[in-house]
Amino acid sequence: MNRSSFRHAIPSRSLLKILLPVAIIVGWEVAAILLNKTFILPRLETVFAVLLNPFSGELTFGSGSLFDNAIISLERVIAGFLAAAGLAIPLGVGMGRSEIVHDLFDSLMQLLRPIPPLAWVPLTLAWFKIGLVSMIFIIGMGAFFPILLNTLDGVKGVKKTWIEAAQILGAKERQILSRVILPGAAPTIWTGLRVGFGIAWMCVVAAEMMPGTNSGLGYLIISSYNFGQVPVIIAGMIVIGIIGIGCDYLFKLVDSHSFAWRELER
């Protein structure tokens, strides 16, 4: 492709990307006016009214403001995510480095992995009752396996000669771990963290819909349903989407900054 055609391609491509969202918004507004039923499809303005007052509890009918609930959800997801990462990364490194550790944990992990995080909800409620511990458990279950599998992959993918070159230069096992294995596996581990965080974010919203919860974006959505507040439901969903995109973007930003070598290595 030559230069000028490349330059042409850019505006038309970004146009293409926003085409569908714009069409949906316009179609929505038209349909909402024609339908004229707020609890099925509210007018765009009513959703925007909620979104533009993120700090007020008035429009959400006593379920707390959008902002407060978003912060609570974020705190929970970060707690669950960190717990999962704190367990999955060391375990993944251990399984990648030692056959004994690998064989010890492998079958258990294979067995637990296909169980969706939400299938843990009833058992979690029985064990921990409703509360932060249950949330962290379910969120952690969602984030754990992508982090574990990517860590394992990353550690296994560290070149043998990188390790041997370090041994030749006098590295001890601990130094090999901190200066060769971890930096060498870091890009793949980071991918695992990124995927894991995305799943954790989906899990927190679902976990907040558990009976007995009284805060968080998931709670806001489900309680708004009970009050028949469809604009709040949609506003809540939009906020969930935006936070999800934002977090993913931050992960990507670090990736392209710190791990450029993975792509550039020939």
């Binding site: 070149k159 000669t161 990188w162 070159a165 030749i168 230069l169 006098g170 060498g184 070598w261 993975r262």
Partner: peptide
Amino acid sequence: RPNPKLGMIFQDYSLYPW
């Protein structure tokens, strides 16, 4: 066992790309 008195250079250089 490996010994810093014996240096080795590998067929694929094996520099650390990071």
